[in-house]
């Protein structure tokens, strides 16, 4: 983690977002430091994915600003933001692989669109990325032939192909068995170490949250209600946080 005097890599200020009359984000403030791994936890439907989509500019806030590397995303024109996104890599919930392409073509896609690499460089980078997610030899498979965990790992590989400075993971382990979850957590830690990227992960799996996080933030009713290192969070006495960490059905979250 960088020193606290450096400006944060990503800064969210007073983000508010509503769909029709339903308020999903209600004044989210968040500073993410360069190189740290932040995990955002919270119940289903609390707007975690919506928050992630704001960071990468897929959604625009009704109010508030998102600043990345000192640039306010709302000041970027449509074409500028498309280029700006090359700083990000995002892994989607179910992988979101292009199902008309092979695994290798999926991972090569961002490289080919960037138009900076010749064919052999693309080939080499695809192999590297597949190695990083421990899927050597799966190049010619189609997404439909892969298991859920493999599909997500290919999604990771595609997200890191351009060595982005910021990595976003949208529920990377939800619905997977514990062994696969542990493996994916290791892959995420590996990627973070080798790329030295700033990582934001969304999850409601507490085990993996504690495994990969430098800091954990809890989102509830559109606000960040707790943030801190795993140690600090374990010492926190907010009843809503306690209920979530202990996984009880009864408590303030259920009201």
């Amino acid at each position: 983690m960088s020193s606290s005097t450096a400006p944060p890599k990503i800064r969210l200020r007073e983000i508010r977002k509503a769909f029709a009359s339903k308020v999903v984000l209600d004044g989210v403030d968040l500073a993410i430091e360069e190189g740290e791994s932040l995990v955002i936890i919270g119940g289903s439907g609390t707007g975690k994915s919506v928050l992630l989509k704001h960071i990468i500019g897929l959604m625009k806030p009704d109010r508030g600003t998102v600043t990345v590397d000192g640039t306010d995303l709302s000041t970027l024109g449509y074409r500028e933001i498309t280029g700006f996104r090359r700083r990000f890599g995002m892994a989607f919930q179910e992988g979101a692989l292009f199902d008309s392409m092979t695994v290798a073509q999926n991972i090569a896609f961002p490289l080919e669109r960037a138009r900076r690499f010749d064919r052999s460089a693309v080939r080499k980078r695809v192999d590297e990325c597949l190695g990083l997610v421990r899927l050597d030899g799966a190049e010619e498979k189609m997404p439909s032939e892969l298991s859920g965990g493999m599909r997500r790992r290919v999604g990771f590989a595609r997200a890191i192909a351009l060595k982005p400075a910021i990595l976003l993971f949208d529920e990377p382990t939800s619905g997977l068995d514990p062994v696969m979850t542990a493996l994916l957590d290791e892959v995420i830690l590996d990627l973070q170490r080798t790329l030295e990227s700033t990582t934001v992960t969304i999850t409601h799996d507490m085990t993996s949250a504690f495994r990969i996080a430098d800091r954990i933030a809890m989102l509830h009713r559109g606000k960040i209600i707790a943030i801190g290192t795993p140690k600090e969070l374990k010492a926190d006495t907010d009843p809503r946080l306690l209920q979530f960490l202990e996984g009880r059905a009864e408590g303030p979250l259920s009201e």
């Binding site: 989509k53 897929l58 498309t82 280029g83 996104r85 179910e94 979101a96 669109r113």
Partner: peptide, 17 residues
Amino acid sequence: TMRVTEQIDALEVLATD
């Protein structure tokens, strides 16, 4: 199908309109 499986979002994220 590409929309509901987030493939269209993925395109945007991969800097492709």
